[in-house]
Simulated assay, not measured.
Amino acid sequence: DVKLNSPSSLIGQALTEILQHPERARDALRVLLHLVEKSLQRIQNGQRNAMYTSQQSVENKVGGIPGWQALLTAVGFRLDPPTSGLPAAVFFPTSDPGDRLQQCSSTLQSLLGLPNPALQALCKLITASETGEQLISRLHQVLVQLQAGEKEQDLASAPIQVSISVQLWRLPGCHEFLAALGFDLCEVGQEEVILKTGKQANRRTVHFALQSLLSLFDSTELPKRLSLDSSSSLESLASAQSVSNALPLGYQQPPFSPTGADSIASDAISVYSLSSIASSMSFVSKPEGGSEGGGPGGRQD
């Protein structure tokens, strides 16, 4: 029970629910990232006064798909029913115990950093829980080999081979997912399929894919596998990501500056193009020490 109810497991379950709606998932993830980043920004700025937005506003922004309430609750938001003339509200957290918001932000950025075909394929894959472990293992293997090689290893001229079972390959979404990450098919055998990294493959996208899979299929392993210690094969990427988390929402610089092939099909820039959401979703803050049932103390964007 403890494992199933841990924040990381609850985040994974909520994301799985959201990804059951592939046509609206990306927009919903953007809205949720905005809310999570807004909370982190307030916490980092030491703002302790209560702030809320209406549940209906969030519901409209995410396109009415389920899962957003569970995700926000898992990272410390409070959903209150309507009271004394006020609509049902979403109250922002004022602290981040266990770095739940940071972890959620990192996961949402990874999902949004995937090329759209990869995210769409992942929406199909999440229904088959047995896919997670094998894909996590293979992508981790690729990143370890990349780390061991030259810093800017040319994946096209020195491709990395991976093998997966034929059963996994045949699951809906699997070959589309790997193709979208830049893997080329080499050989289909009776029991396994051999792939290699192709021209479109890059380290950043594989990292996004690995972190997304860990959050969806193997939540309890996420902090352990993606630790920022010096021995981690993901050290430079993880540290770059932690820097991006500390920057204020709305900045136009993507988490990793795209150069060359790395910029292909990445949605990293649009993750932060959230001004339209920010301008149309109103946040109401209350003065320090004010009662939570009182009137709004001002607006904050």
Rank of each mutant, 00 (worst) to 15 (best):
S285R: 07
I264E: 11
P287Y: 03
K286F: 07
S230K: 12
V271E: 05
E288N: 08
G295K: 12
E288F: 07
L237I: 10
Y251V: 09
K224C: 02
D267H: 14
G298W: 02
Q253E: 15
S230T: 06
S219R: 04
G297K: 02
S230Y: 09
E221I: 00
S236M: 01
K224W: 10
Y272L: 15
Q300I: 05
S233N: 08
S280K: 13
A240R: 14
L249V: 07
S270M: 06
Y272W: 08
S239Y: 11
S275C: 04
L222P: 00
L222E: 01
L216P: 02
V284G: 03
S291G: 09
L247G: 00
P287Q: 03
S244M: 05
G294S: 15
Q253C: 10
S233K: 01
A246I: 01
L237M: 12
S273I: 05
D301I: 10
F283H: 06
K286M: 14
T259H: 13
S239W: 10
N245Q: 13
K286S: 04
L249Q: 02
L249E: 02
Q252H: 14
S232V: 03
E221K: 14
I269T: 15
D267V: 06
L214P: 00
Y251E: 13
L222W: 13
L274M: 11
S244R: 04
A240C: 07
L222A: 03
Q253T: 15
D301C: 05
T259V: 13
S230N: 08
P258D: 02
L222R: 11
I264V: 14
S242E: 11
T259C: 14
L237W: 07
L213E: 02
L237P: 12
P255F: 04
S244W: 06
G290M: 06
Q241G: 13
P287E: 06
